[in-house]
Structure formats: C-alpha cells, structure tokens
Design a protein around this nucleic acid. Structure first.
Length: 740
DNA sequence: ATTAGTGGTGTTTTT
DNA sequence: CACCACTAAT
C-alpha cells in the first residue's frame, strides 16, 4: 500500500491540507469541497507514513454521525482497528475523559447525563422546592441562562451580578449545580465545563493528554462555542498541531453559543496566517452555486470565499408561488412523482423546511398519496416517554440517588404513591439534604402510601441484585418486565407501539457495541497513570450499563427505526447540514418563517438565517426547488405571509418561475383532507361540505349524524349525534370528521 | 389517590 | 394542535 493511493485525485489545495507538516492551520472549506475527505485522508496519511500511531491523535466532530462517518472512512483507507481511537463529538469525548477520571473530576463513577428534557424537569422541580415564582423566573429562561453561562465557561460564583434579577438567577444557578452534584447528574454543558476544569486544575493529567495527542483535528469548527475552544486550547498545549476545518458561511448554531469569533481567534492564536481555502465544489451544478454565492454575499463579516465548479451550469432554480401551504405540498408531491418517474431514487430527494412544525402538511400530502417518506428529527427514539421510563428504572439501578429518575417512575405503573407522598418525600429530602431515595429508605411514609414506597424500594433493590451477572439486553428486559412497565402498556388500549419500542430498546441494548467500552475506560484511566483501582473490581456490568445510558443521552437521535431504503427524506435545514441530494425542495420561503420572525430582533439574526439558507441551497446536486405559500396554517390559525427576502437575493436569471400548472382542486378526493384544506384558505369556501342530516364518522366517537351547523369558514362548529357517544359539539377546524 | 376534563399558553434551529 | 397545570368528580 503506497501513499500515492490515498492522495490520488486530490486537488492542489486539498493535497496541501492533507500533507501539512506538524503545524496548526485553518482550512476554510466551502460546502461540497471535500472537507470530510481532507480530514480523513489527513488522518490516514499521518498514520500510513508512520508519523503517528492511531492513538496519538484526537479528532473532534460536532455530531455523532460525522464521527461515525470519519471512522468508517478511515478504516476503508487503512487496515487498522479504529477501536479505542479518540474520535468523537465534544460531548462524547468529554464524557469519556470524565468516566476515566471521575474521581479527579469529583463525580461518582455512575454519574448520569441529563438531556434537555431532564434538565428542564430538574429546574422546575428546583424552583418549586425553593418556592420561586415561576412567572417571574420561567424555567426555560433559567435553563437558557444556566447553559449560556456554562458555555461561556462561567460558574455562578465567577459571575458578577449588578441587579436583583440577575443576582437571583445566579443564586438559582448555584442551587441547580448543588442539586446536580447531590444527584450525581450532569447536563450537556456540564460535561464540557467539568472537563475543562479538570484539565485546568490537574496539571499531571493535562500534560499527559497534551503529550499523547500530538495532532488534534476539529471538524465544523464554525460551530464551536467558547468553552469548546478553551477545551481545545488546553489539549493543544503549546506544542501540538491543531487542524481546524470549518466554513464561516455555514455557521448556524450561534443561537446555541457557537461563535465564528473562534475562527478569527484561531487564525491569530494557532494558524498564524496559515489558511487554506477549499473553494472547488464537487457537488452542485454551476447555477446552484451562483445562487448560493449571490445570496451569501449579502452578509457582512465573512472570511471570504467563493465556490466554483467544473460541472456545467445545469438547470435554473424552480420557484413556485403557492396560494396555500396545502397547495404547496401538492405541487411538491406532483414534482416528486415526476422526478421518480424519470428514474431519480426517492432517497435522493429531500424536502427541507425551517421548523419541524412545517413537516405536517407535507407528511399529510405524502401519506395520502401513499409515497414512502422518512422524517428526521422530531421525536427521537430515546426521547419517547416509554423509553424514558425504562431508562429511568435503569438509571436507578445504576445510581439510586437520581431524583429525576425516581420521580419519573416511582408511581408508574401506579403503586399508590401519589403526588402527596412524593411531596412529603421531597420535603424530607430537602431538610436532610439527601436524595429522595435516601429519604424514602429512612422514613417510609405511613399507611397505604408507605406500602407503595416500600414496594418500590424493594423493586429497585431486587433489580439491582438480579442485574448482576446479566448481559445488557437481559438487564433491560428484566427491568421492563419486572418494573411492570410492560404490563402497564399491555393494559393500555393503544400501547401496542410502546411495547414494540420497549422491545426495540432491548434490541438496541443487544446491538450496543459496548463490546469493549468497559475495557477502553480502564485503558484510558491506566494510560493516564491512574494507579489506584479506579475502575473497581466490582461491576463491569455497571460500567456497561452506564455506557449504554450515556449513549442514550448523547445519541438520542440518529437512532430511528429502519432507515427505510427507498424513501423521501424530510428534515429541517439544520439537520440537513453535511448531507447532499440530487434534488432539494426548500419550502415555506416566507417572511416570518424563513427568515424566522424571532431572528429579526436578534443581533445578526438575519445573517444567521441567511447562512441557513445558504446551507439549504448547497445541499442540492442537480435540481433545486424553492417555494412559498401565501397562506399557511400555523399554530392553529391561518397566516398570510409574503415571499422571503432570500428569494429576491437570488439573481433573476438563475430562476425559472413555474406557476403554470393547472389550478388543481383542493379536494384530493379525500373528504378528511378537504376540511383541512378548505380551512387553510383565507376566504371561506363557497359552501360548506357539511349539512344537517349528513352521516359522518369521527375517529374517536365513531358513526353519527349532523344535527346542526353553526358558523362557517374557520370557526364553523357542528353538533353531531353519535351512535355510541351521544351528542357532541365539534370544531370543524380540528375534528377529523369524515363523510360516511 | 387517581383520573378525566378544562382552559390557558406557546411554539426555531440541537449536541 | 400539543403540552402543561389546575380543577372537579370518582
């Protein structure tokens, strides 16, 4: 195997980046310029030429998908085992470091990770127990505040407060951290902050890692926040070569603390002028790039970069001006069908939108047409309530001090532990400064509730005992079974899906490639010179369980059931970053939606939205559709939007307006659809399809007959006499009424 | 203690 | 419409 193999086909700039000497540099990599290829080839080249061993590099990405992709590509180029390599997301790698050095980091070995939901729940609980007025201090705001401070690297004690309000916020922040410590849980930002503090404080550890990672590579550098930048600096020390790859024009996470300032700082502090621009695009036709370049040129404060391609100009962008969101959807549907009949695979077509709520109309149209589609984002596997419940039991097995888990399942299924007794327990716990678990063990409430609590404690202790010696999937199965969760959902009329998901969780556990996480953790610790038996003789099983729980928190998404082979791809623009498709539809290009209204009063908000649009445009290889609707149903009411400014920022010659199609009916033959479509229109339809005496069917109430109709258009109501359920008054706008 | 039903409220993007 | 918090009824 010769190195020319790997390097073949790289353009001069890519080659330069791949074969850089041992020094830091910034790679400004435009969309579709072979960024990932450069990154992985560089790693392969460094290893193949014997400059480093696979273990002495650190590669950080932003998403799990990107990390996985990188490992796959590396192992396809080199015959090496990627096991144990430090390639992963910021959060994943920090988690790994904290597991290896949990003692130095001041964390229990079994510390659990709170996802955003869990964090919010904890905050609500905290505010309640402190008697804080949550009108004045909305939990969401506090959550945002805490995360923001942590991502800026600041503890509550390190921040100065000048007014009463922020003083109180800081107190609550401090109280929140105390509670997390008591429970042995960390939120996302805490993973980073803890790790940064650990490395800052512990010089021995820091120099170990600095010596180990002589090369550090960072993907999607424009998405890093200050804390992540700080972490990188600590690991870079003053001798390591850091290669940062990013594109300031694709920075779309400023709302979460990401700052392109990091790119400027990096250039000054690390790269010192060594900047390589990758501007040749291998993805899209010329017209698409022209449009993207023109659009993004409306932004100030760019590092400067322009995409070009050897590929031909290709087709113009198609712009469709729809009367309504439903019509927009049906136009898209029609075009998708025609693309498919031309032989384009469905999986190569993407429907993009700004916010998740917009997928509904599209899904509706696709579903009725019987077209296979797959929605990314939205409700993720590990975020489903039944999965959360099962995980809560598992968390209690791993760490009974986890109050969040305790509260979630203490009375699910019902054990006679009501809100009342839980409150009492919380009071006791607060007085004693203990966990709910301890409070419950020490003072089980009297009476019937006491029996429930005792039963719950016995259940968890029993599970703990019996999990020893079981494999991970066996543990999961045992917990689901014995906790009563399974029976609970079996008894539920429509709990069938939930049971299936629980079974899927067992499969996930079986397929969880923990294989060797326990071993790796031990190796990490040993390599860093942890002499004491930090990884205790005790329970490799517990460690395994912990890795699985961490995996569930850190990789909640991307674990959707069956990647459907031939399906249309629906997703937000955010989740489309990094992907490419033959044809892309960008829908909902309306003021207020895209750019989003909330962005308008934020500093640089519109610029971020424009970058988002830039990302969307550059996903397309060959064909690009842009559409907007004059009226749209949003949050239950009709809105009238004008076309997005972004449409005007694309030069007219690159566009073809395609509003020529026949005025197709809104009634797609489906009565249920008709109601929805009609209400989406500004003007009420000529006559309502509903009349007195008509036989109808309701999904919940069954068959019935309309006895009266009130009002018309948007807020029409009908009185229906159902055979089973009797008389009901229904709002046509929402009720899924079907003509019988 | 538990559940069903009501009404108010809010909704960008996600590791 | 979906989610929450609260209330009334069992």
């Amino acid at each position: 195997m010769s190195s020319s193999n790997i390097l073949a086909g790289l353009n001069p700039q890519q080659l330069e980046a791949v074969t850089l000497p041992h020094e830091s540099a910034l790679i400004l990599a435009g969309a579709g310029s072979g960024k990932t290829r450069v990154l992985t080839t560089r790693i392969a080249w460094l290893i193949q030429t014997g400059q480093i061993s696979p273990h002495s590099l650190l590669a950080v990405t932003f998403t799990n998908k990107a990390a996985r992709e990188m490992l796959i590509r590396i192992s396809s180029m080199l015959p090496i085992n990627t096991r144990g390599m430090w390639v992963g997301t910021f959060h994943g790698l920090c988690n790994r470091m904290l597991r290896a050095h949990h003692r130095d980091a001041g964390l229990p070995q079994t510390f659990q990770i709170l996802d955003t939901q869990d964090q919010l729940a904890l905050i609500k609980r905290l505010l309640k127990s402190l008697g804080v007025d949550d009108e004045k201090y909305p939990p969401r705001d506090l959550q945002y505040f805490i995360s923001g401070k942590k991502e800026a690297g600041q503890r509550a004690s390190a921040v100065e407060a000048y007014d009463e309000h922020s003083k109180r916020l800081l107190e609550l922040y401090a109280e929140y951290d105390r509670q997390c410590n008591r429970e042995g849980v960390v939120d996302f930002a805490e993973l980073l902050l803890r790790c940064v503090e650990l490395l800052s404080r512990n010089e021995i550890l820091r120099s170990h890692y600095v010596r180990r990672f002589s090369y550090v590579l960072v993907d999607e550098f424009q998405d890093t926040n200050r804390l992540q930048y700080h972490w990188l600096k600590l690991l870079a020390g003053d001798r390591n070569a850091v290669l940062a790859v990013g594109d300031d024009d694709q920075s779309i996470y400023a709302f979460r603390g990401a700052s392109t300032q990091n790119m400027f700082d990096f250039e000054r502090e690390f790269a010192r002028g060594r900047v390589i621009k990758l501007e040749q695009n291998y993805r899209s036709h010329g017209t698409i790039l022209d449009a993207a370049n023109a659009l993004i040129s409306h932004n100030d404060r760019r590092l400067g970069k322009e995409l070009w391609t050897h590929a031909g100009a290709g087709e113009p962008l198609r712009v469709y001006d729809a009367p309504s969101d439903a019509d927009e959807a049906s136009y898209i549907l029609q075009e998708v069908k025609s693309l498919r009949s031309e032989g384009m695979p469905l999986s190569g077509i993407a429907l993009l939108y700004r916010s998740n709520a917009q997928s509904r109309v599209l899904e509706h149209a696709l579903f009725n047409a019987g077209l296979a589609y797959r929605v990314y984002g939205g409700l993720r596997f590990f975020e489903r309530q039944e999965i959360k419940h099962a995980l809560a039991y598992l968390r209690l097995v791993a760490n009974p001090e986890d109050d969040g888990a305790f509260l979630r399942v203490a009375n699910l299924p019902a054990r006679g532990i009501g809100a009342r007794s839980l409150e009492q327990l919380q009071d006791i716990a607060r007085e004693q400064g203990s966990s709910l678990w301890q409070a419950a063990c020490a003072n089980p409430p009297a009476g019937k509730a006491g029996q429930g609590v005792t039963a719950f404690i016995r259940l968890i202790e029993g599970l703990r005992q019996d999990c020893l010696g079981l494999s991970l999937p066996e543990m999961v199965e045992l917990v689901i079974d014995r906790s009563g969760l399974k029976a609970y959902y079996q008894a539920d009329r429509d709990g069938q899906d939930r049971i299936e998901n629980l079974n899927e969780l067992v499969n996930a556990a079986a397929g969880f490639d923990a294989g060797d996480t326990a071993l790796i953790a031990a190796e990490d610790a040993a390599a860093a010179g942890e002499q004491d038996q930090n990884v205790p003789a005790g329970d490799p099983q517990l460690i395994l369980l912990n890795s699985f729980l961490a995996h569930a928190a850190l990789e909640a998404g991307e674990y959707q059931a069956a990647d459907g082979a031939q399906a249309l791809q629906l997703m937000t623009v955010h989740s489309a970053k990094g992907l490419e498709f033959d044809a892309v539809f960008i829908s909902g290009l309306e003021e207020g939606l895209f750019p989003h209204e909330n962005s308008l009063n934020q500093a640089d908000g519109v610029e971020e939205e424009r970058r988002l649009m830039y990302v969307a445009l550059t996903r397309a290889r060959r064909r690009l559709y842009l559409s907007h609707a004059q009226t749209r149903m949003l949050h239950g009411q009709t809105r009238y939007n004008i076309a997005s400014r972004f449409l005007e920022e694309i030069p007219e010659p690159l566009i073809r307006r395609v509003n020529t199609r026949k005025a197709s009916s809104w009634f797609d033959g489906h009565a249920g659809t008709a109601v929805k479509t009609v209400t989406a229109y500004a003007a009420p339809p000529p006559s309502s399809p509903w009349r007195v005496g008509q036989d109808v069917v309701h999904p919940k109430f069954g068959a019935g007959v309309i006895v009266s109709v009130q009002g018309r258009g948007l807020d029409a109501r009908v009185m229906v006499n159902f055979r089973q359920a009797g008389m009901k008054e229904l709002a046509l706008e929402y009720a899924k009424l079907t003509a019988a």
